[in-house]
Amino acid sequence: MPVAGHVGSDYERLRPEFKVIPNPWAPTQRVLMVPALRCDVALIHALAAAPDGTLCLEPMEDDALLVQASGVVIASAERIMSADEVRASAGVVVEGIHVTAVVELPRGAHPTLVRGHYEVDAAHVAEYQAAAVDDETFRGYLARWVHGPKDHAAYLAEADRL
C-alpha cells in the first residue's frame, strides 16, 4: 500500500521490504510502498464484548485495524453484554465475524489504562521498566506477576495490596 512522505529517508536502506516506485498516475513522482502487516494472532482488550464476538473498542486506539489484520483474534473485555447492547455502546464497534474468542476480564488492561474506567498504575509500570533492563530481573518480574498469581483476580489483589 502507498504511504505519503518517507521517500529519501534511511528506511529504504534499513527496511528492504519498503519499495519506492513511480506513481502510476504521475510517473515523474516517486512514492513509497509498504507491504501489509499480517498477524497470526492478536490479543486485544475491549470495552465490551458479546458472546458472538461483537466488540466495542476504545476510539483512540487502532485495535479495529489489528482485528482485521489478524488470523486469530482473542479479545478480553471489561464487560460481557448482549450484541445489541455492545453495538449501542460508545466506541468503535467491530462485528463478531472477525473475532475468534472473547474473555471477560475486568481491569484486563492493568497496569495500563482504559480511558474513562481506570487510570494507569504508574508505580507498577515503573517496576516493569526497571525489571525489563536485563533478563535476570525480568525473569523475576515474570515469576512474581505472570506465573505467580493463580488467576487474574489474584494478580489484581496482589497489585492493589501494594
Binding site: 505519503a4 512522505g5 518517507h6 521517500v7 529519501g8 529517508s9 534511511d10 528506511y11 534499513l14 506513481n23 515523474t28 513522482q29 516517486r30 512514492v31
Partner: peptide, 15 residues
C-alpha cells in the same frame, strides 16, 4: 546517524 526524515527533498518527491 540515520535519517528517519530528511529536512528537504528533491523535486521528484511529493513534498
Amino acid at each position: 546517524d540515520h535519517v528517519t526524515s530528511p529536512g528537504s527533498s528533491p523535486p521528484s518527491v511529493v513534498r
